[in-house]
């Protein structure tokens, strides 16, 4: 039974981690522009690594 409780805690915290990741990805604007990232990754020597605003 204690094994189930540990599993329960683990599963919910893993799921919560993904929830946080999802909220962060929306907040950081990853869905604002769905066209340029696929282009950007095909461009060579895009040295522009500064933070996205």
């Amino acid at each position: 039974m204690s094994a189930i409780i540990i599993l329960l805690i683990t599963s919910i915290s893993v799921a919560a981690l993904f929830l946080v990741a999802f909220i962060w990805s929306v907040k950081s604007g990853q869905y604002d522009d769905e066209i340029s990232p696929p282009m950007r990754m095909l461009l060579d020597d895009t040295t522009n690594k500064s933070s996205h605003t």
Binding site: D33, I35, S36, M39, N48, S50, S51, T53
Partner: peptide, 9 residues
């Protein structure tokens, strides 16, 4: 310093 494109907009 940096320029970041939003292509959709």
């Amino acid at each position: 310093v940096s320029s970041h494109v939003n292509f959709e907009r």
